[in-house]
């Protein structure tokens, strides 16, 4: 715990005080929410915990989850990216367009390259030109959507090549490739955040930009790089979706930005930057995915779904901050 604690940038226990309840609650309160949700849904419909359902969820949530991995980096630096949904659609379109003529690996690489390029552009605007990330990415989002519309003339690109569907729909021993990609991204980028110099610097820059700059850290490069990582994640997520659908269009899923932000923030990563962790994003993903899947399994009327989803999200955050405050007051 003490090493992991240092790495998460969250409240840290003094060695030997691992059993300290307040610290434990403050750090892991959000896990409790996930456990409660899973229990409720599993009791309501035991099929929830079946391997088939879980693997299905993994594949279904792979695009949003992978983008949440990148978004965690951006938010940790104190930034924000609202162009994500546009970039996601454009990357899917690029993958589908290229997939009509090129081999699938080349098509996906093209999509990822486009994602990285837009990530770099966002990053440079935010870090070097010092334009507010909110404005920058709203603007770049419009541009990206525009490019996708021009490319597609608002029609869907269809891909006939069955190999194109492998990334999104293929499995190995029953495990979906897209789910494997999600888990691999979580682990690899989680380790980078927790254990590498680069991760340390991400936390430092997000926590105190000026102190980091005075410490000789290349602050602008660090901030820009977070957007590039997110761009790459968006490229892969777009590729997976295009592959799952064997098609893509300019307005794929504008609402996915909210899923991604909710995943990161519900996990407990702070929007003001500097505190949070990848495991938190994983827990956030678990919560959001369980809620959505629970609706289907418990056969809840779609009319009520939004209300319930919203309530659970707010309650989860309230529980987390409420518990922390309660514990801190002692």
């Amino acid at each position: 715990m003490n090493e992991a604690g240092v790495a998460t940038g969250q409240v840290v226990a003094v060695p030997g005080r691992f059993t300290n309840l307040p610290t434990l609650v403050r750090t892991y309160g959000i896990v409790l929410t996930l456990v409660i949700l899973v229990t409720v849904v599993a009791i309501g419909n035991p099929a929830f915990l079946s391997p088939r359902n879980l693997l299905n969820m993994l594949s279904q949530w792979a695009p949003a989850g992978i983008m949440a991995v990148g978004m965690t980096f951006v938010i940790l630096t104190g930034g924000f990216d609202l162009s994500l949904a546009s970039g996601y659609s454009l990357c899917a379109v690029v993958a589908a367009y290229a997939g009509q003529t090129l081999s699938p690996p080349l098509a996906f690489s093209a999509a990822i390259a486009v994602g990285l390029a837009f990530g770099l552009a966002n990053g440079l605007l935010v870090a070097v030109a010092r334009i507010n990330p909110f404005i920058t990415t709203v603007g770049s989002g419009f541009i990206i959507t525009g490019i996708a519309l021009v490319m597609t003339e608002n029609a869907a690109f269809l891909v006939d090549d069955p190999a194109f569907a492998t990334l999104g729909a293929g499995t190995w021993q029953g495990i979906p490739y897209s789910g494997m990609a999600l888990v691999a991204f979580m682990i690899v980028f989680g380790l980078i955040l927790a254990r590498s110099i680069y991760g340390e610097v991400i936390y430092a820059v997000g926590g105190n930009y000026e102190a980091s700059r005075l410490s000789g850290i290349r602050v602008r490069m660090v901030v820009a790089s977070a957007y590039v990582i997110l761009g790459g994640c968006v490229g892969l997520a777009g590729s997976i979706t295009a592959s799952q659908l064997s098609s893509a269009q300019a307005n794929l899923d504008p609402g996915i930005i909210f899923d991604v932000l909710t995943i990161v923030v519900v996990g407990g990563t702070s929007l003001s930057g500097g505190t949070g962790a990848m495991w938190r994003t994983a827990v956030g993903l678990g919560i959001i995915a369980t809620i959505s899947n629970g609706f289907v399994l418990l056969d809840i009327s779609p009319y009520y779904q939004s209300i319930i989803k919203g309530t659970i999200i707010v309650a989860a955050l309230a529980l987390d901050t409420g518990l922390s405050r309660l514990v801190r007051a002692k």
């Binding site: 940038g9 590498s196 340390e200 430092a204 926590g207 105190n208 850290i217």
Partner: peptide, 26 residues
């Protein structure tokens, strides 16, 4: 001077992270 929400340890090492790492890994 400080990244307040980081540990004392992180702050002490902030100016020379490479010295306590193997390559890019802390």
């Amino acid at each position: 001077g400080l990244v307040l929400q980081r540990s004392a340890l992180s702050n002490l090492l902030l100016a020379d992270l490479a010295a306590t790492a193997h390559g890019p890994i802390v």
